[in-house]
Design a protein around this nucleic acid. Structure first.
Lengths: 346, 346
DNA sequence: CTGAAAGCGCTAACAG
DNA sequence: CTGTTAGCGCTTTCAG
């Protein structure tokens, strides 16, 4: 069908292996021969078939980055940095987004077999994986920004994991709201019933309330569940509308993602309330969009750059057997911007 | 290394071809044999190696969707619908994002060879392609939302293309601003020197000014160029800051993308001006985020759903030889929301 | 330094 | 219905 390595070999009057050597910058080749071959390759527009290469190759120097929920802008920056860091080490990255109903571990498994991967990074998603399936992967893997996947694990079974302390960061954020005078604080969260950041951040919320002796009210909790993706503006919007109409006494919203928070803000404003005069809104993640919102969003910032770097670092250390899987907790930072302030004390 | 089709064959006491048939739902196989084989496959956790499959297969029933500038949220929705439409037809989609410095046609070329693609969709990017390289692809291809790539082409060389009438849509948007009384209208655009939507939308801007006898002032044009991605909030922000400080008389901004517009809005507000009382801002694309912004963004909406559908439709017609490449223009719609209004008349 | 030859794991004729 | 066999395009020994 199209031009192959054989055609090039014939046209150059050399063997296919010589062409292969030229292609792969092998040292064992006469520079002149290489130059000649490369010239023909350029003229022909020949591109080697990766399927064939990977099929044959035993090693690859590449990682896969499997992202669940790629539309979440929080991941964009992380992906960018992880790609950069990986390429800096001479490795290439295979980026794949897996949809909500796909099994990322299964995808990882095929990829390892096809592309002879050296390691895998899982970004996003809940932690509900089959330990056996993970072990079968046969290469080091690491979870990033998925919460503490090792919560109930003993040291030997530790899974490589990088995340902020979701519980503590959320507790601080809600504590801040309470200190501002808020008492009727709603939370917009996700996936309370499965191990997830939603669950962890919710726990932080409860802890803060408890610490201040504020009774927990289930009616102020909204668990989003529309659509396949949960971290969306419409979901935040719906949450706040519903919460506000049932509980107009709410003066603050803690949202487990910035994207949800934008939806919440819009609903608050449409209800004729002012931010932050009447209602405070706090998000989570610290994405760029928040700084261009009006008002700028108060949020719990995850240190994306360092998290991305640490993730890649640890994975490479594991690949080189310099490290065992471990749990790394990064510091999150509450950034007080314009969407929050002193609570209404009616 | 890991379990292959041979292992399965051996374990089942059948030939590899039988396993292959079971795997591919071939009709020529005893249902019981298939069941038995599938059971072993499940138990073993065997996953066929796609590289090997594609290497051998002559056909694939798949398309590639090559996206330039994947971080632009405008594309997310288009991608979603295109994937849906394609799968509805029993084809699968290979989604690849190509970075600013990659050549999407080269990527397409490798993909065609590796994956035996049936067709290609190019999403985003400028139109500066080598016609020869495109022809070499050997399969039908289509450009979507990249502007009128056929502007200076005669009918025979027509390239399949779907876009809104960027010039006319922009003209209408600016015309609207003028009718609202605005006279000092700035434009935040991109890539004026190359064939691109930036250029087309800029042309619409000029046309509107001319039609109303408003002199064109180059000082009110800002061409973003920071970073590899141009359609970003920081770029919009910088543009508006710079424009407003040099020309405080500006009362309206026309931005060639919504994302730029958000940056502009933030800069306007920080300058102590109110939207839309003092300054109007109009975007382009009609992304969801605009409806959750405060104020809701006035924008030129591209009919994403229909564009996505038409793109897939035309490509399939071309694959089935039912249609030749053609140029399809879709209607854009000016959505007047909250970020624009009567101009300040000093 | 270079060529010949042996597969990588799978599919697709081709005979049974 | 099923097994045998010949490659898909490439990399990689192994001899020169």
């Amino acid at each position: 069908m199209s031009v192959t390595i054989k055609d090039i070999a014939k046209q150059c009057g050399v063997g296919v292996s010589t062409v292969s050597r030229a292609l792969n910058n092998h040292p064992d080749i006469n520079p002149q021969t290489r130059e000649m071959i490369m010239k023909v390759i350029r003229e022909t527009g020949f591109v080697p078939n990766d399927s064939a290469r990977y099929l044959k190759r035993s090693e690859s120097n590449s990682l896969a980055l499997l992202v669940k929920g790629i539309s979440n802008p929080f991941f964009s920056e992380m992906i960018r940095i992880m790609e950069m860091e990986t390429e800096k080490r001479g490795y290439s990255v295979i980026l794949r987004h897996v949809s909500a109903n796909e099994d990322e571990v299964a995808v990882a498994y095929s990829l390892v077999r096809e592309r002879r991967l050296k390691g895998i990074i899982f970004l996003g998603g809940n932690f509900t994986h089959d330990g056996e399936a993970l072990k079968k992967l046969g290469v080091p893997y690491i979870f990033s920004t998925i919460g503490n996947v090792n919560e109930n694990t003993n040291d030997d079974d530790l899974i490589a994991n990088i995340a902020v302390d979701d519980v503590e960061a959320s507790r601080e954020a809600v504590d801040y709201l309470i200190q501002q005078g808020h008492r009727n604080i709603a939370i917009v969260t996700d996936a309370l019933h499965v191990p997830s950041v939603g669950q962890l951040r919710f726990r932080g919320y409860r802890k803060a309330l408890e610490a201040h002796g504020i009774p927990y009210r289930e009616e102020l909790v909204y668990e989003v569940n529309d659509g396949t993706e949960h971290y969306t503006r419409p979901n935040g919007y719906k949450a706040a509308r519903s919460l506000l109409s049932a509980h107009p006494e709410i003066t603050a919203f803690f949202c487990i993602s910035d994207v949800l928070a934008f939806g919440v803000c819009r609903a608050v404003v449409e209800r004729g309330k002012r931010i932050p005069l009447d209602v405070s809104v706090v998000g989570f993640d610290g994405i760029e969009e928040g700084d261009y919102y009006i008002p700028k969003l108060t949020t719990v910032r995850q240190p994306v750059e360092q998290m991305a770097e640490e993730t890649v670092n640890l994975l490479f250390d594991m690949i080189q057997k310099k490290a065992k899987p471990k749990n790394i907790i990064m510091p999150a930072q509450l950034l007080i911007k314009e969407s929050s302030g002193t609570g209404y004390r009616g």
